[in-house]
Each structure stands twice: as C-alpha cells, then as structure tokens.
C-alpha cells in the first residue's frame, strides 16, 4: 500500500496525529464517513489496531471503529510544522467575521467566500510555506 509518501490509516502506527489526505472509498460508505466528520484535511489520531486489521481512531473528538479494508483506502500524511502553525494561526485570527450583533448569522455571511471559504485548506497551507 505504501507509495512514496502516501501512507494509509492502516499502515501508520498508533498514537500520532495525521491529516487525512484522500479517501478512495466508494459511496455510500464514503458519504457516511464524511458525515461522521472524516473529511479531507481533517486531523486524525489512530489509537488502536486489532489483530484483524480494523482500527480505532479519533476524528473531531469522536472515536470511530473502522474495518481494515476501509482503513486501507484512507490516505493520510503526517502533521507538518505548518499544519500546527496553521492551526494556531486559525485560532488567533478567528475567521468568523465581525461580531456586530446584528442578528441571525449575518456576521458570518456578510462576505461571500470569506476566509477559508473559497480556498481549500490545503491551498492555505501551501501559501504559508
């Protein structure tokens, strides 16, 4: 499964955080995983692997048990320094728009395609390098 830098959720070791790069799953299971929060660019902690190859990981604060064949099709990459920086940066900047208190979500919706909306997260990381 290992190809250049590409690692799968199955092949990596326990205990470290990774970023989901890509999943080569078919519908409807891909959709299901996405609804559970496992989307591209999200941080994932693998915490356990069973003898049969199924794994337990934490995504967005939730523990998921995932079968071996699914885990083999989810590609991850290690957290880079820029990912960590990016996360901190995010926190400082608070991309939500002004707290103008004018009611019903307007603060967030005023600008169409505000920070991070037009850009995918991957691109944002690149631009920081």
């Amino acid at each position: 499964m290992r190809k250049d830098n590409m690692m799968t959720l199955k092949s990596v070791g326990n205990g470290k955080a990774y970023i989901v790069e890509k999943s080569l799953l078919k519908q409807p299971v891909k959709r299901r995983l996405e609804a559970m929060g496992l989307i591209e660019g999200t941080m994932i902690h693998k915490i356990n692997e069973a003898l049969d190859g199924s794994i337990i990981c934490i995504v967005k604060g939730t523990r998921l048990a995932i079968g071996k064949e699914l885990a083999e099709r989810i590609f991850v990459r290690p957290m880079s320094a820029s990912d960590i920086r990016h996360r901190r940066h995010r926190k400082r900047c608070r991309g939500m728009g002004p707290r103008d208190g004018s009611g019903r979500g307007s603060g967030m919706n005023r600008k169409r395609g505000g920070v991070g909306q037009a850009k995918k997260r991957g691109e944002a990381i690149d631009s920081e390098k």
Binding site: V29, L33, M36, R63, L64, A65, I66, G67, K68, E69
Partner: peptide
C-alpha cells in the same frame, strides 16, 4: 464483499 465495520464508539 464483506461489509466493513464502521461504528462510533461512545465514551
């Protein structure tokens, strides 16, 4: 095709 495990584990 074996159906793959996918379940949320509550705390």
């Amino acid at each position: 095709e074996v159906n793959q495990l996918l379940i949320e584990l509550p705390e």
